[in-house]
Simulated scan of single mutants.
Amino acid sequence: MSRKGIKPFANESDCLQIGGITIENRVDRVSIFGSIDITRDKEGLAAAREMKTILELTLTELESADLPDKVTLRPAKTVKNPFE
């Protein structure tokens, strides 16, 4: 598990942000969207390492599974906002 606490494909609730990149966890996919500048400084290095960690964890999960040729993605479920 990464320091941010995401385990790819483990649940339908984990989500984290690295700069402008959002990574959402699902049991049938990991969605990565947004934009980030990897700057040539310590912040850029930290962001690149975190992204690398997430991708390595995702690869490990995929490589250790008996994968079908293609999955049919399940649509997202809408839930009531608990803060309303």
Rank of each mutant, 00 (worst) to 15 (best):
M1A: 11
M1R: 02
S2F: 01
K7I: 10
P8R: 02
F9W: 03
F9V: 01
N11A: 05
E12K: 03
E12A: 08
E12N: 12
S13D: 05
D14G: 00
D14K: 00
C15D: 04
Q17N: 10
G19R: 10
I23D: 02
I23S: 02
I23F: 03
R26C: 13
R29A: 08
R29P: 01
I32A: 11
F33Q: 12
G34E: 11
S35G: 10
I36N: 13
D37I: 00
T39K: 06
E43N: 14
E43Q: 14
A46S: 12
A46L: 12
A46C: 07
A47Q: 15
A48M: 12
A48F: 12
R49K: 09
E50M: 06
E50S: 07
E50Q: 10
E56S: 07
T58G: 02
T58C: 04
L59N: 06
T60W: 10
E61I: 02
E63V: 01
S64R: 05
D66Y: 04
D66M: 06
P68D: 07
D69M: 01
K70C: 06
V71Q: 08
V71R: 12
T72Q: 10
P75C: 09
K77H: 13
K77Q: 15
V79F: 15
K80S: 15
K80W: 14
K80L: 15
P82M: 13
P82G: 12
P82H: 11
E84L: 12
